[in-house]
Design a protein around this nucleic acid. Structure first.
Lengths: 145, 145
DNA sequence: CTACCTGCAAAACGTTTGCAAGACG
DNA sequence: CGTCTTGCAAACGTTTTGCAGGTAG
Protein backbone atom coordinates (compact mmCIF):
# COMPACT_ATOMS: atom_id res chain seq x y z
CA UNK A 1 0.00 0.00 0.00
CA UNK A 2 1.14 3.48 -0.84
CA UNK A 3 2.35 5.59 2.06
CA UNK A 4 1.15 9.11 2.63
CA UNK A 5 4.30 10.90 1.58
CA UNK A 6 4.70 8.59 -1.40
CA UNK A 7 1.23 9.57 -2.53
CA UNK A 8 1.83 13.31 -2.32
CA UNK A 9 5.22 12.96 -4.01
CA UNK A 10 3.66 10.97 -6.82
CA UNK A 11 0.99 13.63 -7.41
CA UNK A 12 3.58 16.38 -7.47
CA UNK A 13 5.73 14.44 -9.91
CA UNK A 14 2.77 13.63 -12.15
CA UNK A 15 2.11 17.33 -12.51
CA UNK A 16 5.77 18.26 -12.89
CA UNK A 17 5.77 20.28 -9.71
CA UNK A 18 9.07 20.64 -7.89
CA UNK A 19 9.01 19.00 -4.50
CA UNK A 20 9.23 21.14 -1.36
CA UNK A 21 8.22 20.53 2.24
CA UNK A 22 5.53 23.22 2.07
CA UNK A 23 3.86 21.83 -1.04
CA UNK A 24 3.85 18.37 0.45
CA UNK A 25 2.25 19.64 3.65
CA UNK A 26 -0.49 21.54 1.84
CA UNK A 27 -1.27 18.70 -0.54
CA UNK A 28 -1.22 16.23 2.34
CA UNK A 29 -3.89 18.28 4.09
CA UNK A 30 -6.26 18.02 1.13
CA UNK A 31 -5.66 14.27 0.87
CA UNK A 32 -5.82 13.19 4.50
CA UNK A 33 -8.80 15.39 5.39
CA UNK A 34 -10.71 15.72 2.12
CA UNK A 35 -13.01 18.73 2.29
CA UNK A 36 -13.07 22.31 1.06
CA UNK A 37 -10.72 24.80 2.69
CA UNK A 38 -10.46 28.56 2.59
CA UNK A 39 -6.93 29.87 2.07
CA UNK A 40 -6.73 31.24 5.58
CA UNK A 41 -7.92 27.92 7.00
CA UNK A 42 -5.03 26.18 5.30
CA UNK A 43 -2.75 28.88 6.66
CA UNK A 44 -4.05 28.52 10.23
CA UNK A 45 -3.63 24.75 10.11
CA UNK A 46 -0.08 24.86 8.77
CA UNK A 47 1.26 28.05 10.33
CA UNK A 48 2.58 25.94 13.20
CA UNK A 49 4.91 24.27 10.70
CA UNK A 50 6.32 27.62 9.69
CA UNK A 51 4.42 27.97 6.41
CA UNK A 52 3.70 31.59 5.51
CA UNK A 53 0.48 32.99 4.11
CA UNK A 54 2.12 34.00 0.83
CA UNK A 55 3.27 30.44 0.27
CA UNK A 56 -0.24 29.18 0.94
CA UNK A 57 -1.72 31.50 -1.69
CA UNK A 58 1.06 30.85 -4.18
CA UNK A 59 0.77 27.10 -3.74
CA UNK A 60 -3.03 26.98 -3.94
CA UNK A 61 -2.97 29.06 -7.11
CA UNK A 62 -0.31 26.81 -8.58
CA UNK A 63 -2.12 23.58 -7.65
CA UNK A 64 -5.25 25.06 -9.18
CA UNK A 65 -3.51 25.95 -12.44
CA UNK A 66 -2.01 22.47 -12.61
CA UNK A 67 -5.39 20.85 -11.99
CA UNK A 68 -4.49 19.26 -8.68
CA UNK A 69 -7.17 21.16 -6.78
CA UNK A 70 -10.17 23.19 -7.86
CA UNK A 71 -11.83 26.26 -6.49
CA UNK A 72 -15.44 26.84 -5.56
CA UNK A 73 -17.10 30.03 -4.45
CA UNK A 74 -20.34 31.12 -2.88
CA UNK A 75 -19.87 34.77 -3.73
CA UNK A 76 -18.49 35.70 -0.35
CA UNK A 77 -15.83 33.04 0.16
CA UNK A 78 -13.42 31.04 -1.96
CA UNK A 79 -12.77 27.42 -1.14
CA UNK A 80 -10.41 24.84 -2.53
CA UNK A 81 -10.78 21.07 -2.73
CA UNK A 82 -9.19 18.10 -4.51
CA UNK A 83 -10.03 17.94 -8.18
CA UNK A 84 -11.71 14.95 -9.76
CA UNK A 85 -9.97 13.49 -12.74
CA UNK A 86 -12.86 12.19 -14.76
CA UNK A 87 -14.04 13.69 -18.00
CA UNK A 88 -16.75 16.32 -17.54
CA UNK A 89 -16.71 16.25 -13.76
CA UNK A 90 -19.77 17.49 -11.95
CA UNK A 91 -19.41 19.18 -8.57
CA UNK A 92 -22.50 19.76 -6.49
CA UNK A 93 -22.44 21.91 -3.37
CA UNK A 94 -25.36 22.89 -1.22
CA UNK A 95 -25.37 26.14 0.71
CA UNK A 96 -27.89 26.73 3.47
CA UNK A 97 -29.21 30.28 3.30
CA UNK A 98 -29.85 30.23 7.02
CA UNK A 99 -26.83 28.68 8.70
CA UNK A 100 -24.49 29.43 5.79
CA UNK A 101 -22.84 26.03 5.82
CA UNK A 102 -21.73 24.44 2.59
CA UNK A 103 -22.13 20.70 2.14
CA UNK A 104 -20.72 18.54 -0.60
CA UNK A 105 -23.06 16.30 -2.47
CA UNK A 106 -21.79 13.06 -3.91
CA UNK A 107 -24.81 10.90 -4.73
CA UNK A 108 -23.81 9.04 -7.88
CA UNK A 109 -27.29 8.77 -9.37
CA UNK A 110 -28.00 12.45 -9.03
CA UNK A 111 -24.64 13.32 -10.46
CA UNK A 112 -25.52 11.20 -13.46
CA UNK A 113 -28.75 13.10 -13.91
CA UNK A 114 -26.81 16.34 -14.00
CA UNK A 115 -24.28 14.78 -16.32
CA UNK A 116 -27.07 13.97 -18.76
CA UNK A 117 -28.13 17.58 -18.72
CA UNK A 118 -24.52 18.51 -19.42
CA UNK A 119 -24.49 16.39 -22.57
CA UNK A 120 -27.47 18.11 -24.12
CA UNK A 121 -26.22 21.50 -23.02
CA UNK A 122 -22.96 20.85 -24.78
CA UNK A 123 -24.74 20.24 -28.07
CA UNK A 124 -27.16 23.13 -27.80
CA UNK A 125 -24.58 25.70 -26.81
CA UNK A 126 -21.99 24.41 -29.27
CA UNK A 127 -19.29 24.44 -26.62
CA UNK A 128 -16.81 21.99 -25.19
CA UNK A 129 -17.50 21.33 -21.53
CA UNK A 130 -14.72 20.54 -19.11
CA UNK A 131 -16.53 20.57 -15.80
CA UNK A 132 -19.62 21.88 -14.14
CA UNK A 133 -20.13 23.46 -10.76
CA UNK A 134 -23.53 23.51 -9.18
CA UNK A 135 -24.25 25.61 -6.15
CA UNK A 136 -27.67 24.95 -4.72
CA UNK A 137 -29.20 27.47 -2.34
CA UNK A 138 -31.90 26.54 0.10
CA UNK A 139 -32.51 25.33 3.61
CA UNK A 140 -30.63 22.33 4.96
CA UNK A 141 -32.43 19.51 6.74
CA UNK A 142 -31.72 21.04 10.14
CA UNK A 143 -32.80 24.58 9.28
CA UNK A 144 -35.89 23.82 7.20
CA UNK A 145 -37.95 22.64 10.20
CA UNK B 1 -47.13 50.70 -22.34
CA UNK B 2 -45.17 51.24 -19.20
CA UNK B 3 -42.47 53.89 -19.32
CA UNK B 4 -38.98 53.18 -18.15
CA UNK B 5 -39.10 55.25 -14.98
CA UNK B 6 -42.56 53.92 -14.18
CA UNK B 7 -41.18 50.41 -14.37
CA UNK B 8 -38.28 51.05 -12.00
CA UNK B 9 -40.54 52.94 -9.59
CA UNK B 10 -42.98 50.07 -9.59
CA UNK B 11 -40.27 47.54 -8.77
CA UNK B 12 -38.98 49.70 -5.95
CA UNK B 13 -42.48 50.11 -4.53
CA UNK B 14 -43.23 46.40 -4.83
CA UNK B 15 -40.22 45.69 -2.66
CA UNK B 16 -40.90 48.52 -0.23
CA UNK B 17 -37.71 50.31 -1.13
CA UNK B 18 -37.65 54.07 -0.67
CA UNK B 19 -37.25 55.86 -3.97
CA UNK B 20 -34.04 57.81 -4.68
CA UNK B 21 -32.41 58.98 -7.89
CA UNK B 22 -29.43 56.66 -7.34
CA UNK B 23 -31.52 53.54 -6.84
CA UNK B 24 -33.54 54.31 -9.92
CA UNK B 25 -30.39 54.77 -12.00
CA UNK B 26 -28.85 51.51 -10.84
CA UNK B 27 -32.04 49.51 -11.31
CA UNK B 28 -32.59 51.13 -14.68
CA UNK B 29 -29.18 49.91 -15.80
CA UNK B 30 -30.08 46.29 -15.01
CA UNK B 31 -33.39 46.60 -16.83
CA UNK B 32 -32.39 48.48 -19.97
CA UNK B 33 -29.19 46.51 -20.54
CA UNK B 34 -29.90 43.12 -18.99
CA UNK B 35 -26.63 41.35 -18.32
CA UNK B 36 -24.37 40.64 -15.38
CA UNK B 37 -22.36 43.50 -13.93
CA UNK B 38 -19.50 43.70 -11.47
CA UNK B 39 -19.90 46.33 -8.78
CA UNK B 40 -17.12 48.45 -10.22
CA UNK B 41 -18.65 48.23 -13.70
CA UNK B 42 -21.87 49.68 -12.34
CA UNK B 43 -19.80 52.37 -10.64
CA UNK B 44 -17.88 53.26 -13.79
CA UNK B 45 -21.10 53.52 -15.81
CA UNK B 46 -22.87 55.72 -13.28
CA UNK B 47 -20.00 57.72 -11.79
CA UNK B 48 -20.71 60.41 -14.40
CA UNK B 49 -24.08 60.94 -12.74
CA UNK B 50 -22.41 61.57 -9.41
CA UNK B 51 -23.08 58.17 -7.86
CA UNK B 52 -20.40 57.08 -5.39
CA UNK B 53 -18.89 53.64 -5.03
CA UNK B 54 -20.27 53.20 -1.51
CA UNK B 55 -23.79 53.83 -2.77
CA UNK B 56 -23.28 51.27 -5.51
CA UNK B 57 -22.22 48.58 -3.03
CA UNK B 58 -24.93 49.52 -0.54
CA UNK B 59 -27.61 49.50 -3.22
CA UNK B 60 -26.51 46.23 -4.82
CA UNK B 61 -26.45 44.53 -1.43
CA UNK B 62 -29.87 45.91 -0.64
CA UNK B 63 -31.37 44.88 -3.98
CA UNK B 64 -29.89 41.45 -3.44
CA UNK B 65 -31.38 41.08 0.02
CA UNK B 66 -34.77 42.22 -1.29
CA UNK B 67 -34.61 39.73 -4.15
CA UNK B 68 -34.52 42.31 -6.93
CA UNK B 69 -31.15 41.15 -8.22
CA UNK B 70 -29.02 38.08 -7.58
CA UNK B 71 -25.32 37.48 -7.37
CA UNK B 72 -23.19 35.01 -9.27
CA UNK B 73 -19.52 34.28 -8.82
CA UNK B 74 -16.77 32.51 -10.69
CA UNK B 75 -14.39 32.44 -7.75
CA UNK B 76 -12.47 35.51 -8.82
CA UNK B 77 -15.28 37.96 -9.56
CA UNK B 78 -18.74 38.72 -8.26
CA UNK B 79 -21.46 39.69 -10.71
CA UNK B 80 -25.02 40.87 -10.27
CA UNK B 81 -28.02 40.43 -12.56
CA UNK B 82 -31.81 40.71 -12.45
CA UNK B 83 -33.44 37.94 -10.45
CA UNK B 84 -36.01 35.58 -11.88
CA UNK B 85 -39.22 35.33 -9.95
CA UNK B 86 -40.21 31.74 -10.49
CA UNK B 87 -40.13 29.06 -7.86
CA UNK B 88 -36.86 27.10 -7.82
CA UNK B 89 -35.10 29.21 -10.40
CA UNK B 90 -32.21 27.72 -12.28
CA UNK B 91 -29.40 29.95 -13.48
CA UNK B 92 -26.90 28.59 -15.94
CA UNK B 93 -23.72 30.46 -16.83
CA UNK B 94 -20.93 29.30 -19.04
CA UNK B 95 -17.38 30.45 -18.48
CA UNK B 96 -14.76 29.99 -21.16
CA UNK B 97 -11.50 28.85 -19.62
CA UNK B 98 -9.58 30.44 -22.46
CA UNK B 99 -11.09 33.87 -23.09
CA UNK B 100 -12.61 34.12 -19.61
CA UNK B 101 -15.93 35.45 -20.83
CA UNK B 102 -19.12 34.48 -19.06
CA UNK B 103 -22.24 33.84 -21.10
CA UNK B 104 -25.78 33.38 -19.86
CA UNK B 105 -27.66 30.33 -20.94
CA UNK B 106 -31.43 30.50 -21.25
CA UNK B 107 -32.54 27.50 -23.30
CA UNK B 108 -35.86 26.53 -21.75
CA UNK B 109 -35.62 22.80 -22.47
CA UNK B 110 -32.19 22.46 -20.97
CA UNK B 111 -33.24 24.45 -17.96
CA UNK B 112 -36.08 22.00 -17.48
CA UNK B 113 -33.65 19.13 -17.59
CA UNK B 114 -31.66 20.74 -14.82
CA UNK B 115 -34.84 21.49 -12.94
CA UNK B 116 -35.74 17.80 -13.01
CA UNK B 117 -32.39 16.98 -11.50
CA UNK B 118 -33.12 19.56 -8.84
CA UNK B 119 -36.33 17.82 -7.87
CA UNK B 120 -34.68 14.50 -7.22
CA UNK B 121 -31.80 16.17 -5.45
CA UNK B 122 -34.25 17.85 -3.13
CA UNK B 123 -35.68 14.50 -2.04
CA UNK B 124 -32.37 12.70 -1.71
CA UNK B 125 -30.67 15.42 0.28
CA UNK B 126 -33.75 16.12 2.41
CA UNK B 127 -33.42 19.84 1.89
CA UNK B 128 -35.61 22.66 0.66
CA UNK B 129 -34.21 24.19 -2.51
CA UNK B 130 -34.71 27.85 -3.33
CA UNK B 131 -32.56 28.26 -6.39
CA UNK B 132 -29.66 26.70 -8.18
CA UNK B 133 -26.64 28.22 -9.84
CA UNK B 134 -24.73 26.30 -12.42
CA UNK B 135 -21.37 27.46 -13.64
CA UNK B 136 -20.09 25.44 -16.56
CA UNK B 137 -16.41 25.61 -17.43
CA UNK B 138 -15.12 24.77 -20.85
CA UNK B 139 -14.28 26.25 -24.21
CA UNK B 140 -16.74 28.51 -25.98
CA UNK B 141 -17.62 28.02 -29.65
CA UNK B 142 -15.00 30.57 -30.72
CA UNK B 143 -12.16 29.24 -28.59
CA UNK B 144 -12.69 25.51 -29.06
CA UNK B 145 -11.57 25.56 -32.71
C1' DC C 1 26.26 26.11 -8.37
C1' DT C 2 22.07 27.80 -10.38
C1' DA C 3 17.42 28.22 -10.49
C1' DC C 4 13.62 28.15 -8.04
C1' DC C 5 11.12 28.66 -3.68
C1' DT C 6 10.24 30.78 0.82
C1' DG C 7 8.91 34.17 4.61
C1' DC C 8 8.34 38.74 5.60
C1' DA C 9 6.43 43.11 5.05
C1' DA C 10 4.42 46.27 2.06
C1' DA C 11 1.22 47.08 -1.53
C1' DA C 12 -2.91 46.30 -4.02
C1' DC C 13 -7.52 45.08 -4.40
C1' DG C 14 -12.51 44.72 -3.45
C1' DT C 15 -15.69 45.83 -0.02
C1' DT C 16 -17.55 47.99 4.24
C1' DT C 17 -18.16 51.65 7.63
C1' DG C 18 -18.39 56.25 10.30
C1' DC C 19 -19.67 60.59 9.60
C1' DA C 20 -21.37 65.16 8.28
C1' DA C 21 -24.27 66.98 4.76
C1' DG C 22 -28.29 66.36 1.83
C1' DA C 23 -32.71 64.34 -0.04
C1' DC C 24 -37.22 62.14 0.75
C1' DG C 25 -41.96 62.19 2.10
C1' DC D 1 -39.66 68.26 10.26
C1' DG D 2 -37.51 63.65 11.40
C1' DT D 3 -35.76 59.89 9.08
C1' DC D 4 -33.34 57.65 5.80
C1' DT D 5 -29.67 58.05 2.16
C1' DT D 6 -25.61 59.90 0.16
C1' DG D 7 -20.51 60.91 -0.93
C1' DC D 8 -16.21 61.03 0.96
C1' DA D 9 -12.40 59.07 3.10
C1' DA D 10 -10.69 55.92 6.16
C1' DA D 11 -10.75 51.11 7.63
C1' DC D 12 -11.09 46.42 6.64
C1' DG D 13 -10.09 41.56 5.08
C1' DT D 14 -8.23 39.09 1.39
C1' DT D 15 -4.84 38.37 -2.08
C1' DT D 16 -0.58 39.69 -4.54
C1' DT D 17 4.09 41.34 -4.96
C1' DG D 18 9.18 42.75 -4.24
C1' DC D 19 12.94 41.34 -2.12
C1' DA D 20 16.73 39.19 0.54
C1' DG D 21 17.80 34.77 2.11
C1' DG D 22 17.22 29.65 1.83
C1' DT D 23 16.44 25.08 -0.44
C1' DA D 24 16.21 21.49 -4.18
C1' DG D 25 18.47 19.03 -7.52
Amino acid sequence: MEKRNECTRRILEEHNIMHTVQREEILSLFITEPKHYKADEVFKLLRCKGIGIATVYRTLEMFRKCGVIKEISDGKNRFFEMKKHEEKSVYVHFKCSKCGEIHDYDDVNALNEFAAAVESTEKKMDVSIRDMNILINGLCSKCKE
